[in-house]
Write a protein that binds this DNA or RNA. Structure first.
Lengths: 218, 218
DNA sequence: TTACAAAGTTAGATTGATCTAACAAATATA
DNA sequence: TATATTTGTTAGATCAATCTAACTTTGTAA
């Protein structure tokens, strides 16, 4: 049995590995707001449970079992976010905190029903892929808007580091997933980008924002 | 702040008080499957938090604050059950265990949205009243089917002690809330009752079952 | 290449929720 | 009423998850 606390460590490891490739005790300590010695002893416990490969002073790695379990928790999280937005009409900036709690619900039927009602969605409201029933995730090959060139036309496909404030910022400017964005110009000094998108919006967005917007060429 | 564990004690106290009038350490110990000394020390803790009136060797009582908190948890539980049955199409025998977990979710919008989508329901799928936003509950004046007379015609309004097995038993016999039941005869020996109800069902049910069916005169 | 800073580890304390063992009070029964 | 049973309480142990303080290893910069 995996406790709620252990689930949170697994999920954090999965997300950090996804983002930075490697996971350290320090990363976990920062993302979970838990002191390093606590993280350290939890890693040993998860190693006993065959969820983590642990060797002193080496980077942490999830085992296959650990990856699967983490994937299943992320599946529940993202399915829930989709359900909250699509079926319960909550704003995409409100759903993360609720999903963070619902992801720990122990009930197979509950999440299967969600999946069915949503017609087996592949992505969540922020464009992140939803792992399958075996915890397997297909990583999408998106590009950051900040890495595009002047003149490019792209589709907004996902957002990352999506805090509630950031999502509200986007909503306020009618920026949502799926819109077609044309890059008018890039300011060399601070890398801010002037874009146009439906319906006849023109905005200049900072590099900080552009780094959080994932796009596809069209 | 009230912990998940404390919430479970408050809810149990509310339910026991509703059913038997008084609450004892022993009752709580049995319903929560927690040993008496643990219950005893939790009662002292809840007394410190002004949620329970505690005096050695006296029956336990919730304070007004305790009643309100318990009522709000039960509200979340029952709203959730209604949501799971009505909006997510789960069977009434499956929803209790899930609601038991979702009732601890901390999010005002989540439950307000549920309430709105359900169009402000007054009862849950088992006929139990849903407390209002202040935790206030209106107790219904139902009668047990086992207390009715031969010849009575009544409406099935609620079920109590509704275990999953009991609810499946009822579903299998097309017995659901709202049906009109006519009492054909009562066996004096064991108090089993022969009833008829739509559509042209006749069943003989034991006293144990009849004690769990709450009805209204019509 | 030595010294300092950052990251990781060990040891031991704390807190919340649980337990068992032993004792005390209240209640039921002979 | 005396005794036995049930219920309630106290004391102290355990376990999971956290912490702080002190120490070690690794990596970096002078």
């Amino acid at each position: 049995m995996i406790s709620l606390t252990e689930e949170n460590y697994l999920k954090a490891m999965f997300n950090i590995a996804d983002e930075k490739g490697e996971v350290s005790v320090n990363d976990l300590s920062k993302t979970l707001n838990i002191k390093m010695p606590t993280v350290n002893s939890m890693m040993k416990k998860l190693a006993d449970k065959k969820l983590v490969h642990y060797e002193s002073y080496k980077p942490l790695r999830l085992t296959e079992k650990g990856k699967k379990e983490a994937g299943l928790i992320i599946r529940k999280h993202r399915l829930t976010e989709m359900f909250l937005v699509d079926k319960m009409k909550l704003g995409w900036e409100d759903v993360h905190d609720i999903a963070e709690q619902i992801e720990h619900i122990q009930s197979i039927v509950f999440f299967e029903k969600m999946d069915e009602l949503l017609d087996y969605p592949k992505i969540d409201p922020h464009g992140s892929p939803i792992p399958d029933k075996h915890g397997k995730i297909i990583f999408k090959e998106y590009k950051k808007l900040s890495d595009c060139q002047s003149g490019d036309t792209v589709k907004l496909s996902a957002v990352i580091h999506s805090s509630s404030d950031f999502l509200k910022f986007l909503s306020n400017r009618q920026m949502h997933l799926g819109i077609k964005i044309k890059i008018k110009s890039i300011e060399p000094f601070d890398k801010s980008i002037t874009i146009s998108y439906p319906k006849s919006h023109t905005e200049t967005i900072s590099n900080i924002v552009a780094e959080r917007l994932l796009v596809e060429k069209i």
